[in-house]
Structures are given as structure tokens and as C-alpha cells.
């Protein structure tokens, strides 16, 4: 398995997303293979990669379950307006950014309950693929959750980056951070909606520079309302 993952992470760099056979799309989110640290793939040919990890107080099984329930993704993923299941392994994603809507379909490629999920887009406005791995942390401290996400800088990038101020790689990092907050505390830290004095031009520019104009996902509040 480790050998396959490593080979595919490398060859996937030279492939067009969505064009290859499903097996060769398998990505390697693994950080360690055969006792060696594996760095994340580097950006190449218009493809961007980001790998990010968190320690979550919780069981791999439960965290896998929370991630697997894709229709709840809008609770913790930034700017995801809705996710609808369209088949056993497929779902339709709608992303609402400050300036427009992106829609795409996604397909689950590999699904190992309690351990790993991988997916790729299969048409629409976004070309992306990713994998999440859940593994027990040493010392019984919880679960290491590692995400490897790959995407092409197309409409998704312009929608994300130029218009909302959130770098798409950073969005992957933020989404995992928010997944952790939701899993550990039942809420996502929130400042939008609190009072402040007039921001003025300088304050507004700063706020955008800090990506504070990206809507904060609702956490469980949406379930309550």
C-alpha cells in the first residue's frame, strides 16, 4: 500500500485531474512511510497541493463519521452553501463566495471506515481531489487527522483568491482547523456579528487583508435553527 501511495502521489503530478483511471488517482496523505518522513508534493503544472494536520481529542471512528457525512460539510467548511448526495459515492457541491457561485460534482474514490476517505471532482467549476487519513496519535492523545488536497488554479482559484481574499491552500487549512473545533467543542470560534465602532477605509482594508470577510462557518448553530 505504502509503495502504491508514494508512486501515485508522484505520478499524479503529471496527470490531468479527472482524466485518469480511478486507481491511479489515489493520493497519499500519509506523512510517514516505511519510517521515513514524506514531504507533501510540490506545486507543478498549474496544480497546487496542500497537506495539513491536526490533533483532535476523539476517536478515529467518530471523526471519520463526522467527515463522511458530506451533507454536514457546510457546518464547518468555508463558503460551502450546500452538499447534496446524488448517489452512493457521489455528491453535488455548491460554493457561495462573495462574488459568485461555483458548483461541482464529487466522487468518493476510496473509503476505509474509521481510517481513510479519498475523493475527486468529476465535473463542474472545480477540479480538485483529496484524501483524509485518521490515525490514533501516540500516547492515547487522540487522533491525527491529515488532509492532502490537490486542485487546479482555475475558476476556483480566482473565485477564492482574488475576490474573497482567502488563498485556496489556506482555505484547506482553515477547514481542517474548523473541523477540529467543531469536533472538540461543538462550535466554531466566531467574531462575525459582534459590535464595533466605524471601521473606516483603513479598517476595512485591514479586515479584508486578514481574510475576515470570508464568512465563518456556522457550526451546529445551523442545525439548531
Amino acid at each position: 500500500m505504502a509503495e502504491i501511495l508514494r508512486k501515485d502521489a508522484r505520478t499524479a503530478l503529471h496527470e490531468k485531474p479527472g482524466a485518469e483511471q480511478s486507481e491511479s488517482r489515489t493520493l497519499g496523505a500519509n506523512v510517514v512511510e516505511d519510517g521515513r518522513y514524506m514531504p507533501p508534493p510540490t506545486d507543478e503544472d498549474g496544480k497546487q497541493w496542500v497537506r495539513t494536520s491536526v490533533l483532535i481529542k476523539g476517536e478515529p471512528r467518530d471523526l471519520y463519521g463526522l467527515w463522511h457525512n458530506v451533507e454536514d460539510a457546510p457546518l464547518w467548511q468555508e463558503q460551502i452553501a450546500s452538499v447534496t448526495r446524488t448517489g452512493e459515492k457521489t455528491s453535488h457541491w455548491t460554493m457561495q463566495s462573495a462574488t459568485g457561485t461555483l458548483e461541482w460534482d464529487s466522487e468518493i474514490m476510496a473509503d476505509e471506515p474509521g481510517h481513510r476517505i479519498s475523493w475527486r471532482s468529476i465535473g463542474g467549476d472545480s477540479e480538485n481531489a483529496g484524501e483524509v487519513v485518521f490515525e490514533a496519535a501516540p500516547g492515547g492523545r487522540g487522533t491525527y487527522v491529515t488532509v492532502l488536497q490537490e486542485f487546479r488554479m482555475g475558476k476556483l482559484a480566482s473565485g477564492f483568491e482574488t475576490l474573497t481574499g482567502r488563498n485556496p491552500k489556506q482555505a484547506v487549512i482553515e477547514n481542517l482547523r474548523q473541523f477540529k473545533a467543531l469536533a472538540e467543542t461543538g462550535e466554531i470560534p466566531r467574531t462575525h456579528g459582534q459590535p464595533h465602532g466605524p471601521r473606516g477605509a483603513a479598517g476595512t482594508v485591514k479586515s479584508a487583508a486578514y481574510a475576515e470577510n470570508v464568512a465563518q462557518p456556522p457550526g451546529l448553530e445551523r442545525m439548531a435553527s
Partner: peptide
């Protein structure tokens, strides 16, 4: 630094 009138805070999260 100024003392200003601003909106009252509201509950935003369950905790």
C-alpha cells in the same frame, strides 16, 4: 481612542 455608541452584543455561539 474614543468612547462611542455601538450596537449591543448578541449571542453568536452555543457556549
Amino acid at each position: 481612542i474614543e468612547t462611542l455608541k455601538v450596537p449591543d452584543p448578541v449571542i453568536l455561539n452555543p457556549h
